[in-house]
Design a protein around this nucleic acid. Sequence first.
DNA 1: ATCGTAAAATACCATTTAGTATGTTGTCAG
DNA 2: CTGACAACATACTAAATGGTATTTTACGAT
Lengths: 210, 210
Amino acid sequence: MTTKNPPTKSATRTRNLQRSRQEILDAAFIEVFKNGFQGVSVDEIIKKTDLTKGAFYHQFPTKMDLGYALVEEVITPMILDRWILPLENFKNPLEGILVQLQKNIGEVEIDQLKLGCPLNNLVQEMAPVDKGFKKKLETALELWIDKIEWHLKRGKKAGYLSDDVSPRDAANFIVMAHEGFYGMVKGLSDPSLVKSLFKSIKIYFKSISN
Amino acid sequence: MTTKNPPTKSATRTRNLQRSRQEILDAAFIEVFKNGFQGVSVDEIIKKTDLTKGAFYHQFPTKMDLGYALVEEVITPMILDRWILPLENFKNPLEGILVQLQKNIGEVEIDQLKLGCPLNNLVQEMAPVDKGFKKKLETALELWIDKIEWHLKRGKKAGYLSDDVSPRDAANFIVMAHEGFYGMVKGLSDPSLVKSLFKSIKIYFKSISN
DNA sequence: ATCGTAAAATACCATTTAGTATGTTGTCAG
DNA sequence: CTGACAACATACTAAATGGTATTTTACGAT
């Protein structure tokens, strides 16, 4: 009974609320990433989809709600995936952070980098404009900082960080450096910039290391 | 002859191209600062003025041109005024930068801070969207970095900076820290954040000082 | 098989938007 | 004093925008 597999046919070509939601979120993420939230229209988003406006407003009451969902369902998992989870593999968290910086910034094509950081983009654009946005964005940012702080704490216990450094202060500064990093790359074309900023971050890391 | 003073009357209540331009720029700066460039309309801007659309489009061919003028005629002078010119008074540029950070960030009302840095806001929002914007913004950012670098060089000559620190690298990092600073304050409500970031910046400054 | 409902499509609307066309008025040279 | 032109005002438009009203269709339960 209840054979979950569809008989034949091209498998998953039916109606599916979750799939449609994901399809809209994926398309929206790209467009918002490229043009900003206020710079993209609902029509443009659904045009990148094989769905229509009816499906959009069946999922999201307003355009703002799409924005909130972007932060919670796309951007937050992306941050954890790129910046937090990989740190598990490093005994020294500072080393792990540097490696991830190298992977996520140093080794990414410049065209992608020019679009900035999805989270930071929205913070800069939407935090002062809409309170709902600000709250979701703040939650994501705090999560990021909290996780970094947690890893720094264990790194400190393991003796990698100086005794007189506050993990919270360092976590704040590190996330700040991430955002600043993206911001600078976005604004400048200087090809030596990434290396230059890297050098300075390493200097800071050394100054808080044992 | 040619009595430049108007006879009586409320003095400067006549037509004046420059004054009108400045009036539009001032109003536009505030609105764009609050809502982003794409988040504000020409109609809203002129509503904050005692001029009309005719005056606006007499000054600026398009809305984009207003944006360009904002960068060149309002934001760039503001940066020089806030972050560069005051450094003349300090033999040690690092000390001057810290003092200006304190003045321009530490002592400003939080409501104002929440709006971010006018330059960084536009970089994040408009650099990937419009090439004209990107060019103007890049010019402004480069000017900022160049001036900081110049002051660091003289500071190095005077013996305040370590011999092995590159003024260019440090200048890049310092401007990056400014932008990151604003970005974090914009995204978070943590009242201890400013002090926390300050501490870290001081640590970095010490690590490149003699 | 069919029926109710959720998922999605289609057509439509009021408002807002950047920009234009044209009219009006202040100012200044002669 | 008087044109002439620059500095502005007013009225308008075509397109885009977020959102809605209504209809169609797939799917699971019975």
